[in-house]
């Protein structure tokens, strides 16, 4: 069995479990929606949506993302399912990639469905900006999930569990958040792609560094 096939098997397991419960996806989606609604009350009604959307969007996505990441490993903890996963005759790094890919899929899907609703709420037409926006969202989400998956595997073994994940994750993903917000802001201002290349480079650098680092260190986290 090839490397990617093994990874896909683990992801497929998560997709199947998720398909039966729809727990992670729905909680992330509804939560993102709630954040936007609450955010709306916190803002001045006359505020320019182009100024506020990037911030609101990424607050909603990151907080919803933490929720989803937490679920991803707490589900494994129930009935000691994670023990079974560790018994798979594969490298620990593959388990990491599989779990990571699963969370990435769920979070991207939630974002994909939340985005049109944000468009309606903020009265912005983003359809023609979708390719650029999609690229930024994908790169940022990948960076967020790559570290998040690793930290989530740690935080389920702490006393404070759900609280521990954001406490560890948010400071580390600061570059992703800044890059995502800034790039989204430039895109909404209809600026050419060349203006955000430095941000895209930053996001790519973050993704590569932390995917590799998490892949390599995951085995130390799950080791019994």
């Amino acid at each position: 069995m090839g490397f990617f096939q093994k990874v896909w098997f683990i992801t497929w397991k998560d997709i199947k479990a998720e398909w039966r419960t729809r727990e992670i996806f729905s909680s992330m989606f509804i939560f993102a929606l709630l954040v936007i609604v609450i955010f709306n009350f916190a803002l001045d009604p006359g505020a320019d949506p182009q100024m506020t959307l990037p911030g609101a969007l990424w607050i909603a996505f990151t907080f919803a993302g933490v929720l989803g990441l937490n679920r991803s490993f707490i589900l494994e903890r129930e009935n000691e399912a994670f023990q079974g996963l560790l018994l798979c005759p594969v490298d620990r790094g593959i388990i990491y990639l599989g779990k990571m890919l699963g969370s990435l899929l769920f979070m991207s899907l939630a974002e994909l469905i939340a985005l049109p609703i944000f468009m309606v709420f903020f009265n912005l037409n983003l359809l023609n900006l979708l390719p650029e926006l999609g690229l930024v969202i994908l790169l940022s989400t990948l960076g967020f999930i790559s570290v998040g998956t690793l930290f989530s595997a740690m935080s389920i073994h702490t006393k404070t569990r759900e609280v521990m994940l954001p406490v560890l994750l948010f400071p580390v993903v600061v570059p992703v958040i800044i890059g995502a917000v800034k790039a989204t802001d430039r895109i909404l201002a209809q600026k050419p792609l060349s203006e955000i290349t430095s941000w895209l480079h930053l996001l790519i650098a973050f993704d590569v560094i932390f995917l590799v680092a998490s892949f390599l260190t995951f085995e130390f986290v799950v080791e019994e």
Binding site: V172, V174, P175, I178, K182, L202
Partner: peptide, 27 residues
Amino acid sequence: KTSRFTAVFGILAFLDVPLVYMSTRWW
């Protein structure tokens, strides 16, 4: 698990410092 967790976090946090500095500078 404490020692392993914190060691992993210690390494990742350190890798992050240049990125944080760069991003806050561009920001």
